[in-house]
Amino acid sequence: MTLSGSFFKIGPARLFVHFAVLVIVIIWLIPTLGIFVSALRDKDQLVSSGWWTAFAGSSRTVAARLGQPDQQKQDGTVYVIAGNVLEGQQGRSIRAFGTRVQQPAAYKAGETADLGDGLSLTVNDDGSYRYTKTAAFGPDDGGRRVYISVATPPEFTLQNYKNVLTSEGIGQSFINSLTVTIPATIIPILIAAFAAYALSWMEFPGRALLIALVVGLIVVPLQMSLIPLLRLYNGIGSLLDAPSKTYPGIWFAHTAFGMPLAIYLLRAYIAGLPKEIIESARVDGASDFEIFTRIVLPLSFPALASFAIFQFLWVWNDLLVAMVFLGTDRDHLVLTGALNALLGSRGGNWEILTASAFVTIVVPLLVFFGLQRYLVRGLLAGSVKGG
């Protein structure tokens, strides 16, 4: 069967699904592409035009002044002031010009504008101009303001990222976020994996009650448990005479908030593993710890990766828990907190904001695309086989 033949045998429902997925992917990628392109653009071009015009150049209107009367020269019956309004600006060209702010592009480049009273002005696309008068220029004729529409070629730079990662303090916040996120992802996975195995394959009193409790804790809002957890954390800190704002504190906070979902997902997957494998290992004399580390853990990697994606993205994008347990001082401020502060202090600097935003999302993107093939396998296998 040829490729074209197999294509036309695809049903309309499947074609619709493929088309819908393609549309969703495009919609999801457009903002990311916009942030990436904007973060590489020159500041002036970013302000004057949208990111979709980045490869076609941009146009912006600026004001310039013509020469002074002492620069005039007589040319036949007229007096001329000549010069260049693009002095020192390489690679730019003029599309239009005007003498009034209400009509900054009243005349095309190269066109002669009649300004009245014997005055005329010609501005060429290379920036050279010829300002003429039928009589000698007086003091009131010098330094006349003109408005020019300047076309600039595409300009891309890494200076925005350099500014963000050095002078804006985002670099330190990036390290702080990694310091928080990596342990806060690994710790709940390790604990939840042991708990999930126990709830799946070990018989003990109250197991069903614990499973129901775990499911119930999933729906508890974070905001409801934040204050009791913080009071408990501060109480333990006071008894031990320990600092109140530490990384271990936020690690355990994120572990507590992520544990119910982790146990639920991992138990659903581990409970669906073939029973014969577990029983054969026990017959051979393997302990529960050996069964868990040598059999269950390797087979559960898709589920572990699924939860790792959820937990990493949630912790990386967190702001509330980080501000409560770490504070807002510069040495402990996470990336989301630094970006939030940047929005308040540099809200008009789009080049800084877009570069900061892309720095923020690049790590979650790498994690997601690196583990996404395990995401659906882990979730679907657990939902189908869960017992």
Rank of each mutant, 00 (worst) to 15 (best):
3 L>Q: 13
6 S>E: 10
6 S>Y: 07
9 K>F: 13
16 F>Y: 11
17 V>T: 10
20 A>Q: 07
21 V>C: 14
21 V>Q: 04
26 I>H: 04
28 W>V: 10
29 L>N: 09
29 L>V: 09
35 I>N: 11
36 F>H: 10
37 V>G: 07
41 R>C: 01
41 R>V: 03
43 K>F: 11
47 V>M: 07
52 W>Q: 01
53 T>L: 10
63 A>P: 06
79 Y>G: 10
81 I>E: 02
83 G>Q: 06
83 G>D: 03
87 E>N: 14
94 I>C: 06
97 F>C: 10
98 G>R: 00
101 V>S: 12
101 V>E: 12
103 Q>R: 11
105 A>H: 06
110 G>I: 02
113 A>L: 00
114 D>T: 00
114 D>N: 06
115 L>D: 00
119 L>T: 00
121 L>G: 00
124 N>V: 13
126 D>Q: 09
136 A>P: 12
136 A>N: 10
147 Y>K: 03
152 T>L: 03
155 E>W: 08
156 F>Y: 05
157 T>R: 05
159 Q>S: 15
171 G>Y: 01
171 G>M: 04
173 S>M: 00
175 I>W: 08
176 N>A: 08
177 S>R: 04
178 L>N: 01
179 T>P: 11
180 V>A: 11
182 I>K: 08
184 A>V: 09
192 A>S: 14
193 A>G: 02
193 A>D: 02
193 A>V: 05
196 A>S: 14
197 Y>G: 01
199 L>K: 06
203 E>H: 12
208 A>K: 14
211 I>L: 05
220 V>E: 03
222 L>H: 10
223 Q>R: 09
226 L>R: 02
229 L>G: 04
233 Y>K: 03
236 I>P: 06
236 I>L: 12
237 G>C: 02
238 S>I: 07
246 T>H: 02
256 A>E: 01
261 L>R: 08
264 Y>Q: 03
271 A>P: 13
284 D>Q: 03
286 A>C: 11
287 S>L: 02
288 D>R: 01
289 F>A: 15
289 F>R: 15
290 E>K: 15
290 E>W: 13
291 I>E: 03
293 T>L: 10
295 I>M: 12
297 L>K: 05
301 F>K: 02
302 P>K: 08
303 A>H: 05
303 A>E: 04
303 A>V: 07
304 L>C: 09
305 A>H: 06
315 V>G: 06
317 N>V: 12
317 N>Y: 08
321 V>Y: 09
324 V>G: 05
324 V>R: 12
327 G>M: 13
329 D>H: 11
333 L>A: 13
335 L>A: 08
335 L>V: 06
338 A>T: 10
341 A>Q: 15
345 S>M: 05
347 G>N: 09
358 F>A: 09
359 V>N: 01
359 V>C: 09
360 T>E: 11
361 I>S: 08
361 I>V: 15
362 V>T: 07
363 V>L: 13
367 V>N: 00
368 F>E: 05
369 F>W: 06
370 G>E: 03
373 R>D: 12
373 R>H: 12
376 V>H: 06
380 L>T: 15
382 G>I: 02
384 V>I: 13
387 G>F: 13
